[in-house]
Simulated scan of single mutants.
Amino acid sequence: MVRKVTIEFKRKEDVKEASKGTYVQEINKRLEEFEEYIEKRDPVQASEKIYKAAEEFLKLLAEFYNILEAREAKLKGKWTRRLLDKASYELGLTDIFDIADKLHVWGFHERSMDIDDANREKL
């Protein structure tokens, strides 16, 4: 089972900053959709939803910690695959992002994973 994301902050300013763009709500929505598609045995959509949850989680942390990649994305007006990859490295989350990316490519784009393959990958 995938758990909802709950982030606790020490300061009120941190809560305000982290809630920009409603990242936490978006992450939880995608995790719920992932669970629904696993139950429906739809690996294509399940793979896409778990990737989107991981992507939003990376953006949330990158912007919260104001790392270089978040500042670059803000200047460009969008996140690129390169920036997400670099942010995952900077935040020490390469394992999570690599699994999510594998599911996205092989499960969603290539449609070569079955539901057991998709469910076996752990984030």
Rank of each mutant, 00 (worst) to 15 (best):
V2N: 00
I7S: 02
I7D: 03
E8T: 06
E8H: 04
F9M: 11
R11A: 13
K12S: 10
D14V: 06
K16W: 12
E17G: 12
A18C: 06
A18D: 05
G21Y: 12
G21D: 13
T22P: 07
V24R: 03
Q25C: 05
E26I: 06
E26Q: 09
E26S: 08
I27N: 00
N28Q: 06
N28F: 01
R30K: 11
L31F: 01
L31Q: 00
L31N: 00
L31G: 00
F34T: 02
F34N: 02
E35S: 08
E36C: 09
Y37N: 05
Y37M: 08
I38W: 04
I38F: 04
V44L: 13
V44Q: 13
A46Y: 04
A46H: 02
S47K: 15
E48M: 15
E48W: 14
K49F: 07
I50D: 11
I50K: 09
Y51D: 14
Y51G: 11
Y51K: 13
A54M: 11
E55I: 01
L58G: 03
L60C: 00
L60R: 00
L60G: 00
E63C: 13
Y65H: 14
Y65W: 13
N66M: 10
I67E: 05
L68P: 01
L68K: 05
E69G: 04
K74C: 02
L75C: 15
L75P: 14
K76G: 08
G77F: 04
G77V: 02
T80F: 01
R82W: 09
L83Y: 02
D85M: 07
K86M: 09
K86E: 09
A87K: 06
A87S: 10
S88G: 00
E90W: 03
G92M: 02
L93Q: 08
T94E: 15
D95C: 08
I96R: 02
F97I: 04
D98Q: 09
I99G: 08
I99T: 11
A100Y: 11
D101T: 14
K102W: 15
L103A: 12
H104G: 10
G107L: 10
F108A: 08
F108P: 04
R111P: 06
D114I: 06
D114M: 07
D114F: 01
I115S: 05
D116V: 14
D116T: 14
D117V: 12
A118G: 10
A118P: 08
N119R: 15
K122L: 15
L123I: 14
L123C: 12
L123W: 13
